[in-house]
Every structure is written in C-alpha cells, then in structure tokens.
Design a protein around this nucleic acid. Structure first.
Lengths: 204, 204
DNA sequence: GGTAAAAGTTTCCTAAAGGAACATTGCGGC
DNA sequence: GCCGCAATGTTCCTTTAGGAAACTTTTACC
C-alpha cells in the first residue's frame, strides 16, 4: 500500500466493482462509434452475441480473452491500448500509466484514429485525432455515418470533405467544420502528405 | 428429434478445437519457464488458482481477459506478443502474421528476453535473445534456476556468467557455454554497453 | 530399488459468461 | 398527438470458467 492518488481505491477493490471494466467498456464503445457500427453489426462481425457486446460495453461482465480478441480485430483496436487501459487500474499497482491527454491509437483502412483522453470514462464527446493518408484511394461510395454531430479541425495538410448533401469542401490547416454525422461523409487528403485532423464526435 | 445444428450459431464454431489456445497456452508456459517459476509460484503471483493456470497452459479453458491480463503482468509478457499469436490463427483470417524467426519480446528487471520462433508451438527447445543491461546492479543473491539445460552464445558485449558451482566465467562476443540450468546462474554485463546473448533453453 | 517431496493434472462445485428472447428507449412519419 | 421501426438494454437459461482439493506424475535422495 502506498500513498496512491485518492481518486481510486488504490489496489483494493480489485475486480469487485468495475474500475477496470469501466475503462475497457468505454473504450470498446468509443471504438465502435468511431467506426459507425451498431451493436448488431459489430457483434455480428466479431461473431459474438448482441447482448454480450452490450454487457461488455456497460461493464456488466468480465469477458473472455477470446471475445476481446475478436472485438479487437473487428474494431481494429491497437493491442497496447487495451492493456494500457487495463493496467491503469491494475490490481498490483504496477504500470500505472497516466495518459493525461496523450491518446492511444487505432488504425483503419484510410484513417489512423488516435483516441484522446481515453482515461476519462464518462465523457459524452469523443475526441480523436486522425491522420488521413495522402491520396489513399477515393472510395466514398460508402459514406461514414454515425448518429450524432461532429466537429472537425484540420491541424495540418490539405483535404476535401465530401458529404452526402453538400458540395465537396476543400479544407486546409486551420479550417474547421461542424456537421451532422448522420449525413454521410468522408475525407480525402489532397496534398502529397498525410493530413492531420482533430475530430470531436458527439453521439446522440 | 429435430435436425438440429450441431454447432449452434453457425459462425461461432471456430473455437471448437483449440488451434488458437494451443498457441496461447504454449506461450504462457514458455514465458513461465523462462522466468523459472513453478505453477504454484506463477499462479500465486498472478492471484489466480494453480489449477486454472494449468488448464490455461494446456488449453483446457478459455480464460477471461482479466486473467490473461494478470498473467501478462506477472510473466512480463509484451502485449503484442499475445495478440500476434492469437491473430495468427484468427477466425477471420485477417492479420496472419508470419513471424519467421523474428521474435516477439518480453522484458524483465535486468534482462530483456526476446522469444524466438514463437509461431512454432510444438517445440521443446526454447530459444530467445536477451539483452543484458549494462552494469545493472549485481543481485545474484537469487539465482536463476529452471529445470533443464541451457546453451548460451554471446552475440555482443562483455559479461560474466556467475554460477552456483563454478567460478565466475568472463565471456565476450563469440563465446559460448552449455550448462545445467537447474544450477543457479546469472549474468552481469561488464562493459559500459548492453550485452546481447542468445539462449537456447531445454526444459526437461 | 524404495520412499518422500514437489510439480503438475483432474475432479468437483459454485459463480458467472454468453446467447436467445423479451423489454425498453428513441426517433421518424402520418 | 399516435404508431412503427430501429437500436439498445435486460432477463432468463445453458454452458463453462475458475478455485479447492484430491489425485497422479515426476524428481530427488537415500
């Protein structure tokens, strides 16, 4: 026992409550939202039950390693992400990473999402930084779509934001936009280098 | 008498056998052996039951994520290692890493073990490359000890191999030694830089 | 060889994971 | 407003993980 941050009960309350799962569940839900999947879709893709996924996201179960592994693949979560989060509230107290604003990250086909502030479990907005790979094929036949609203700020690079109902919007570093993420949308980097974008997503 | 599906929900059938766990269990056992721990010791350290660990190592169970996480910490396994191994036989077939000689790695207090050929599950010898950190405190009051034999080859650096029954043996790049690993042993890097060593361990 | 101690395995039982079906909530159109 | 649909949450039930202890195997020592 050491003079740990009073916030959590040190290493005592092990798995009794859900200080651990609290983080795990939130992170999985975040990742699912980022991909714009419903419970059903994600569960199907991971070959698990809808209810099981629901329980995991709400920390009402202690999932098996196998289940987590499948979800990890489906949601394309980086492995260290899961463990860092877990270690945070580890029973032994070792490896108590403090992420403090540094995000973890996750990679998809054309985007490289880096979830931010993942240590905070009870947030409604979901901020993440994405690296949009340079001219990485334009496949906006399938829009990204997730119930909610989104704010986007271009940190660096040049890109075009294509949306379902508006004309393509050319953006460059410093530009920002706000839109209904239920409307199909997608980005394409237009310069020869990757674009870096900050997104803040609000699920309804 | 209905024409019931032998496997229930179609796509979940994959986990029937244990092509997956086969790898996981072997890897955990390997890691435990490298650290020279018995089932009892490892289980105690990870706060799980002896029998549980036995079952996991023999792939007779599908452990929970939490359990694996604790073992990971206890055995100081690198997180990607676990998932790479799992992904290898992934149900979806994606991410079929072929490690082909490149090892994964794992870090202990003074050594940095990099398991080699981890994709091969049915091997008796356990090869790994260790980086022995430069002059990292000499604490050979507790010998390393694991039933079996060991071959050691110094790839780079200078070190001294201390053993329970013989005089300390100064070694440098290119030197090698073979010994009974049941005899207490330990290495100390004697130059100002880390030493790199190839070990091949044979558990009896 | 025999015998004791230790390491590992298997059995048994309780608590809980995981899935199917049902219940609830939230949002749309009319 | 009401109704319907879709998404998520909850309940119930079957299977199984996980731990204690009994059992088996291996190792060490005489």
């Amino acid at each position: 026992m050491e003079p740990v941050q009073p916030e959590e009960t040190g290493l005592a309350a092990e798995a009794s409550e859900a200080p651990d799962g609290e983080v795990l569940g939130k992170m999985i839900r975040d990742a699912r939202k980022v991909k714009g999947l419903t419970l059903e879709e994600a569960a199907r893709a991971a070959a698990i039950g809808r209810s099981t996924l629901s329980k995991i996201e709400n920390n009402q179960t202690r999932p098996s390693f196998e289940i987590i592994r499948r979800l990890m693949q489906t949601l394309e979560l980086e492995t260290p992400q899961l463990f860092v989060q877990s270690a945070q509230t580890s029973i032994s107290g070792r490896r108590d990473y403090t992420l403090s604003g540094q995000g973890e990250h996750q990679e998809t086909t054309t985007y490289d999402h880096e979830l931010l502030c993942t240590e905070l479990t009870s947030k409604r907005m979901l901020p993440y930084i994405s690296t949009i790979k340079a001219r990485d094929v334009t496949e906006y036949d399938s829009w990204v779509r997730h119930r909610g609203e989104e704010f986007m700020y271009v940190i660096s690079g040049d890109l075009v934001l294509y949306t379902e109902h508006y004309r393509p919007l050319a953006m460059t570093a410093g530009d920002s936009v706000y839109y209904d993420s239920g409307m199909g949308h997608g980005c394409v980097s237009t310069s020869t280098q990757d674009a870096k974008v900050l997104w803040v997503s609000l699920e309804i």
